[in-house]
Amino acid sequence: MPPQTRGTALRHRLAELRGPAVPAKALDARALAALAANPGCRRRAILDGAGVDKTALAGALGAPSAFGQSQFALTRGNAFEAKVKADGGAELLRLVRKHLDPGAAPDETAESAESAERAAAVPNLSAIGPEGRTARTALALREAVEAGGWSLFDHPMLALEVAGSPAFLEPDAVVVHPDGSWTVVEIKSFPMLDGSADPAKVGAAARQAAVYVLALEKVAARLTPAPRVRHDVLLVCPKDFSNLPTARAVDVRRQRAVTARQLDRLTRIEDIADALPEGTCFAPDLPAEQLAQAVDAVPATYAPECLSACELAFHCRQRSRAGDEVTALGRAVRAELGGLTTVEDVLSAARGETGDPDDPAVAALRRAAALRAEALRGAVCP
């Protein structure tokens, strides 16, 4: 089948899975970073690839999740981003120069700063549809490199192929430096206190920015010569307890490498779709029993970490516990247990009832059980 025909057939199939009357939910960098962190989960791969609203699906299944930002946090984040980008992004460009390109920073005088701000181009990236915006962004990036100087791209549109299906991504900003290199800018509403922020939140922002870096590299590779996509991204946050912006450079080389490797491991979406029973549909208006059957038809790889990254985590946790799966205990425990896939298998092996004694996992379990029994005897008998 020609690639174009195959692509059309896949889009039609994904629309059937989503529900013909249900609009697709865009796959953003946050979702891609979470998907890359758990590449073995076919359930998330097909739901995200089909554009299924997992929040609505979880509610329809009777297992709603509190995952995601509150409306207050979204409003606060939007207001802070607008402040950072006010006046043509003058403050944002100052932070970029200070933290990533100090050699190109202007003198700290009003006149030189205003002159530098006027020299920064802010291209118009409007176009019809995500494909049009992606093409417009790529053209504007090439023009910015050819023109030289500073350019600020406000919410450009990038594309990245994930498991054979395109995902359209929208970073907060991309800056083109006078040397032609490109920098991703992430604007977050969590504070930096005395120059430091919550490591967990910084790590999540770094993983999200790494997805944008990967997508930018795809654009750069199509230009000759290929511009350099910087692996130091700029993280902009409120300073202390104020609403004033501050920033720090974050090296995302490790996150970029991990994300690229994990995304490459994802099973192609059409392979997952082809393995589903005919008539499978994830439309949230279907009866809960029918939805549960459709969701359970796709293998999942649940881990406790999913609770902070996936809207379906509560449903998958219920199913994992009901199936007595050791994945509910965490990835680290699962990796140590080898071929033992259920809690009952683990307990049986520890009691010496089943399992190969030469299996390192079985031997460790039996040793641990013996030590526990010995400790309990010592606690009971003086």
Rank of each mutant, 00 (worst) to 15 (best):
R44K: 13
D285T: 14
V343S: 04
P225E: 06
G148W: 00
D296T: 04
F314M: 11
E311T: 09
A309W: 05
F80M: 06
T137W: 08
A294I: 08
V22P: 05
L74I: 07
A206N: 02
T354K: 14
F72P: 04
E91M: 07
G352Y: 12
K188T: 03
F168R: 03
L158R: 06
P156I: 07
T327K: 13
P3T: 04
L307W: 00
E325G: 03
C381V: 06
C41E: 13
S196L: 12
A163W: 00
C381I: 10
E170M: 11
K201Q: 15
V213S: 02
T183Y: 00
A350N: 13
A26H: 01
A221P: 10
A144R: 09
E117W: 04
A56C: 11
L158V: 05
A292K: 03
A138Y: 03
I269K: 02
D359I: 15
R366K: 15
V343C: 15
A120D: 07
F168P: 00
V52Y: 11
A21K: 14
K239I: 06
A370E: 15
L193I: 10
P357K: 12
L365I: 10
F72C: 10
T5H: 10
A350G: 11
L340F: 08
L100Y: 03
A63T: 02
T301F: 15
A56R: 09
D28R: 05
K98A: 13
G352A: 14
V145Y: 02
C316R: 01
A288F: 07
A31F: 01
Q255L: 00
G88T: 00
V236S: 04
R42Y: 08
L223Y: 02
A140N: 09
T341F: 15
V174E: 01
V145G: 04
L244V: 15
A120G: 01
D240G: 06
E91W: 07
A375V: 09
A361S: 14
Q262T: 07
A260I: 00
L95A: 09
T341A: 14
G19N: 05
